[in-house]
Write a protein that binds this DNA or RNA. Structure first.
Length: 660
DNA sequence: GTATAATCG
DNA sequence: GGCGATTATAC
């Protein structure tokens, strides 16, 4: 073991600096996609539909169960898998392999029973009249998402005693709903704040003029990993005995948060999930599948090469289909390790430039895709396959009626009645020998109801028939898309955008080489800055999620996704000329061109410094408490302190005070 | 905007 | 394979 106290000056300090810089560390705070210190989690519910049925039926965990859809299985729980039950076998085969298995059929709509789905014990015999409903799973998915979000919010506002409030101000973790049973979480801003709380030596200081200088090393020689965490083995040339660097500490904190999230999902809803934690989405997603069920896997930076080298690249997102096949035949291998020895130039001779450089990066673990803070659905589809095919308008219209009812029910859940969101386009897909689709706008003048959807669907059906070969039809589906936000919300957002523009002109007026301008922009009239902060907090402090209770107060409604288009419009025009990359700053939700990332980062850095100085001044004034960076896991003394009068959330009030 | 394909769970 | 959802691409 080396020195226990690396902060003490010693001749060796120079060689023991972290290989990461202040700049890389502080990029974490904004959700920048460029820093190697990023912490991205992927959470995947284990055999989700099967778990939903286990929970709904109140069955013990060791009961073998599969979810049935007609004669197929669409989900198999872990208790059933040792019997050889997979999604690829039929219900009859499953029963034979495991006589005690519960084969629960999905809920269905039934012709002539209105728009209500139900669990029916004879649904598998009624493929002719029933249509599958996945609503029960959507509902559970929403609950789980809310639990995850609430737990993350707890971490965002969980402040230890003492002076570190400013590091959690306005914090939020980006949550991207990737599918009904998967989410990505950008833990970076959260991890950043925890690190700064626990390791004061990382905090921005006036001495750190050179932000490209290495950070001090972590004050430890061995990372205290939780025994429950699965660590991917290090690359061949790396050793566990080597001192950790800050990327390891980032993963340690990230793993703690993910564990807490998973525990919350279990404690509150009794669902198990698996998680992957890594520096980007691709690695996190591969990681979450490594140890299932109910486990989490950490892919440290120093393990990435070893980790990826063992994969077929067809396992990597986007390479599972035709592109992957094409690459396989072009290079005669499916192994990542084989492709690693192909130089970029050679990739370019066989693939278009964009694909070549993307591929070159992705197999080396380089994935800069953002966690898109989006939890709302973008389209809704209701479909039915016909075996045998159907042959008449009359038959088709029976299904259109059910599709309309299905979609309408989901729109109600989504808030059409309250005018929160409504779709602008309706589409009918139709399959005979080939696939066709037609779409039309949903008239903005009408209230969206079941009957309107049905009438529009019939109109589309007539068009399809007029177009050409409509029969025999083997598949029909109706979908709605292009959602728009309700009126009240738009007003509120316009209000914010105005303030956002003011803030923007302030922000972009500063150049890093003009400290005076930067400083003066920190000190506009207090009142105005407060307005801006409230605006941002009000609109973006909480990631949106679909099933938050509707609060009637206009300003308290759940938020839409930050619209990338309008976000782009808030940025300077030169940003949008071509494919200029930009990202949404995690701290202020402004759209920032990547070229201006550093400048914007500097602006936040300066602002952080100012905040911290103010806080320190306040602490001195108030006889500051001991500034231990004592561990701050959930529930350790963060509730209202006696001195504060026991308000519900004293931290919030405190934070605001710090800015006034 | 409209239509279709590709990819994923 | 059935049912859904998202994104990219071409026009």
């Amino acid at each position: 073991m080396s020195s226990e106290d690396p902060l003490n000056a010693s001749p060796n300090d120079a060689v023991k600096r972290s290989r990461y810089t202040h700049r890389q560390l502080h990029l974490l705070r904004q959700g920048s996609t460029a820093t190697p210190l990023r912490a991205i989690a992927h959470i995947d519910l284990d055999a989700f539909y099967a778990q939903c049925e286990m929970v709904r039926l109140g069955l013990p965990r060791d009961t073998p169960l599969a979810v049935r859809q007609w004669e197929s299985l669409i989900a198999v729980n872990y208790a059933a898998r040792p019997f050889g039950i997979t999604r690829m076998i039929t219900a009859a085969e499953a029963r034979k392999a495991c006589p005690n298995i519960v084969l629960q059929h999905v809920a269905t709509f039934r012709e002539g029973e209105g728009g209500r789905w139900a669990y029916r014990d004879d649904s598998f015999k009624n493929i002719k009249t029933d249509k599958v409903s996945l609503d029960p799973y959507r509902a559970e998915s929403r609950k789980i998402l809310k639990t995850i979000k609430d737990e993350l919010d707890r971490w965002c506002t969980n402040e230890p005693d003492g002076e570190a409030h400013c590091f959690t101000q306005g914090l939020s973790a980006g949550l991207e709903k990737a599918s009904i049973d998967e989410v990505f979480i950008d833990l970076s801003p959260l991890v950043y704040s925890v690190l700064l709380q626990r390791y004061p030596e990382l905090r921005p200081s006036l001495q750190d003029e050179n932000r490209d200088a290495g950070l001090p090393p972590p004050p430890t020689t061995a990372v205290p990993w939780d025994p429950e965490d699965f660590l991917v083995e290090l690359d061949l040339h790396e050793r566990e005995e080597d001192d950790p660097d800050w990327d390891d500490m980032v993963m340690l904190v990230g793993a703690e948060i993910v564990r807490a999230v998973r525990r919350a999902v279990w404690d509150e809803l009794k669902y198990t999930c698996s998680a992957g934690l890594a520096r980007n989405k691709m690695l996190a997603k591969l990681g979450s599948a490594c140890n299932k069920p109910d486990k989490q896997t950490v892919v440290r930076n120093r393990a990435v090469q070893h980790f990826l080298g063992g994969y077929k690249f067809t396992q990597i997102r986007m390479l599972g289909g035709k592109l992957g096949d094409q690459i396989t035949s072009l290079f005669g291998t499916e192994q990542v390790s084989d492709l690693l020895s192909v130089p970029l130039e050679q990739l370019r001779t066989k693939l278009d430039d964009h694909t070549a450089s993307w591929l070159y990066g992705i197999i080396r673990g380089d994935d800069r895709s953002e966690v898109n803070p989006r939890t709302q659905i973008k389209s809704m589809l209701s479909a039915k396959s016909f075996r045998p095919s159907i042959n008449s308008v009359g038959q088709a219209e029976k299904w259109l009626r059910i599709f309309a009812a299905d979609i309408y029910g989901r729109l109600v859940e989504d808030g059409v009645l309250e005018n929160r969101r409504r779709p602008r386009v309706i589409t009918l897909h139709h399959r005979t020998a080939q696939s066709r689709s037609r779409q039309i706008p949903i008239p903005a003048s009408n209230a969206v109801d079941e009957n309107l959807l049905f009438e529009l669907a019939k109109t589309l059906m007539r068009q399809v028939i007029t177009d050409g070969q409509a029969w025999p039809c083997s598949n029909l589906s109706l979908s709605v898309s292009s959602f728009e936000e309700g009126v009240s919300k738009n007003k509120a957002i316009e209000g914010f955008l105005l303030r956002g523009d003011q803030a923007k002109s302030l922000s972009h007026g500063s150049r890093p080489r003009d400290p005076n301008a930067a400083a003066s922009e920190q000190l506009p009239p207090e009142k105005k800055r407060k307005t801006d902060d409230n605006g941002i907090k009000r609109f973006f402090a909480q990631p949106p999620h679909t099933d938050s209770p509707v609060v009637d107060e206009e300003s308290a409604q759940p938020q839409p996704d930050p619209d990338p288009i309008s976000a782009a419009q808030r940025s300077p025009p030169e940003v949008h000329g071509s494919a200029m990359p930009y990202y949404t700053c995690g701290r202020c939700s402004r759209s920032i061109a990547e070229l201006e990332s550093e400048e914007h980062d500097d602006w936040h850095f300066a602002k952080d410094l100012e905040l911290q100085e103010r806080q320190e001044a306040r602490d001195v004034q108030h006889q500051s408490r001991p500034t231990n960076s004592s561990s701050s896991s959930r529930g350790t003394g963060t509730r209202g302190r006696g001195g504060r009068g026991g308000r519900g959330k004293p931290e919030r009030g405190q934070m605001r005070l710090a800015f006034q």
